[in-house]
Design a protein around this nucleic acid. Structure first.
Length: 464
RNA sequence: GGCGUCGUGGCCAAGUGGUAAGGCAAGGGUCUGCAAAACCCUGAUCACGGGUUCGAAUCCCGUCGACGCCUCCA
């Protein structure tokens, strides 16, 4: 039984989908007003891994991730640069899409955008007004009436009374209660605007997610995810809107990833302590970021440092070592010794699932994979041939696929392979004649070109 | 101040009642012409102080500390 830590109850709970065998999940995407950073990558990767695990377990997964393509920051940014806000957003959406591809994140079932969900958003706002959960102010804003929602605050564990103290109404807002939040914002001059029953304007931030969920996934979903910085107010408000509108429980399980830390602090656009995904990928492979996340637990803060990345990179190499081919002249193991390979493969597969079932415990699951790697390497050293290694290596490949790791060699154009093989063949002859100096030169020069040779008593292997 | 998460070997980190997985780093060794890789061996009593229990890293109370949210934020 898969167990998930539910932010709503602060407990691990058995996962029971609304519909057997199917998972509806929605993850809050990004507001596209600048380049995405590795913190966004973390969130995308965490939920990609969760999604892939559901698929591995045989679920049919509907995965929706939105783009917030109209909001204050986008408008502010556009005004600074003289660009059109919607075009600006479009550009950043394209960039983020490319980032996700580079990070090997599976494409979402749907990527709704605020600007393309306008009808649904307005319908929902109108419904909320009708039910008394929202009101339009004189200036054309529409606010959600927090006091009308008895269990407001249940996700973030806050009580309205506690929050009243520090809350203030900004100049120009016409709220009944300082904690009321905007569903619709009246347009100011020069801003993107849409017609509505309340005058020209644009949606507030929270309503788009509620409307998109309703439009694409329906009134109830299994899993709602996002960074834990969204718990309040964003997800709290989503619950308030959706449940007030439909009268039904919105999401069964709320999953939140921890924040990526740079210099001991949360990486964020407002703090400015960020590394963009593009910057990261120019330095290291996307697998490294994924591995970093896998070696930590998704709910905890994660340190993004050179040391932690180096460590992740090495760990990745270690996983890859399990996939290296048998030695060219392997003599083969006796059947009994070979059986330990398939035994371990089976044990690993089981340990993998058991561990992952416990709230996606990736560090534990990775540990299981390392055990398999060790068994494979030991067997290879002992002379296992390709056929004997195959089942265990297939298992390793399958399970690393579940994590979305590509484990690809650095380059490997393919065309060079035959020449490298030829060089090795020649070098092997030289080594037989003890021409060490020339043999070492070939090895060194190939190393400079990124090709690593490894000699063993059973022959020479190479990898990029 | 309120709400929440957390504090395990040099670093990262699993483990939520029965005497501490795994990775990285370090040291020693095997293999090897050398190198690399791989393999083997070596290390923690779990922030601190109380308490519950036959028994606690694991439950309870307190202290200290870190981080997140309480305004936009993955």
């Amino acid at each position: 039984m898969l167990r998930i830590y539910n932010t709503l109850t602060r407990k691990k709970e058995d996962f029971r989908p609304l519909e057997p065998g199917k998972v509806k999940m929605y993850v809050c995407g990004v507001t596209v007003y600048s380049d995405a950073h590795v913190g966004h990558a973390m969130s995308a990767l965490v939920f990609d891994i969760i999604r892939r695990y559901f698929i591995y377990r045989g679920y049919e997964v509907q995965f929706v991730m939105n783009y917030t393509d109209v909001d204050d920051k986008i408008i502010a940014r556009a005004n600074q640069t003289g660009a059109d806000p919607l075009k600006l957003a479009e550009g950043y959406i394209d960039a983020y899409r490319r980032n996700l591809v580079d990070l090997n994140v599976l494409p979402a079932s749907a990527n709704p955008r605020a600007t393309q969900t306008m009808a649904e958003i307005q319908a929902m706002i109108a419904g909320l007004i009708e039910k008394g959960y929202a009101y339009a102010s004189e200036n054309g804003d529409v606010y959600f009436r927090v006091a009308k929602d008895e269990d407001y605050g249940r996700l973030s564990g806050r009580r309205l009374e506690d929050m009243q103290a520090g809350a203030r109404i900004e100049v120009g807002e016409q709220k009944e209660n300082p904690l009321d939040f905007a569903l619709w914002k009246a347009a100011k001059p020069g801003e993107p605007e849409w017609d509505s029953p309340w005058g020209k304007g644009r949606p507030g931030w929270h309503i788009e997610c509620s409307a998109m969920n309703l439009a694409i996934l329906g009134e109830q979903i299994d899993i709602h995810g996002g960074g834990n910085d969204l718990i309040f107010p964003h997800h709290e408000n989503e619950i308030a809107q959706s449940e007030s509108y439909t009268g039904k429980e919105f999401a069964r399980y709320w999953i939140h990833n921890g924040m990526l830390q740079l210099g001991g602090e949360k990486m964020s656009k407002s703090l400015g302590n960020l590394v963009t995904i593009d910057e990261f990928l120019s330095e290291r492979d996307g697998d490294v970021m994924r591995m970093l996340i896998l070696t930590g637990s998704y709910r905890a803060p994660l340190a993004f440092t050179d040391d932690s990345l180096d460590s992740a990179e090495k760990a990745l190499e270690r996983l890859k070592s399990g996939l290296r081919p048998a030695s060219p002249n392997a003599s083969g193991l006796d059947p009994r010794a070979a059986a330990t390979l398939s035994d371990q493969a089976e044990a690993t597969q089981q340990a993998f699932s058991e561990t992952m079932d416990d709230d996606f415990n990736t560090p534990g699951a990775i540990a299981a994979l390392f055990e398999l790697v060790k068994t494979i390497n030991t067997a290879r050293d002992a002379g296992a041939n390709a056929d004997q290694l195959d089942p265990a290596q297939k298992t390793l490949r399958t399970l690393t696929d579940v994590f979305g790791l590509r484990l690809a060699d650095k380059q490997g154009s393919g065309d060079a392979d035959m020449f490298i093989d030829l060089l090795i063949e020649v070098r092997t002859e030289m080594r037989k004649q003890k021409q060490w100096a020339m043999s070492d030169l070939i090895r060194d020069r190939l190393k400079d070109l990124g090709v690593t040779l490894e000699d063993s008593k059973d022959g020479t292997t190479w990898h990029w």
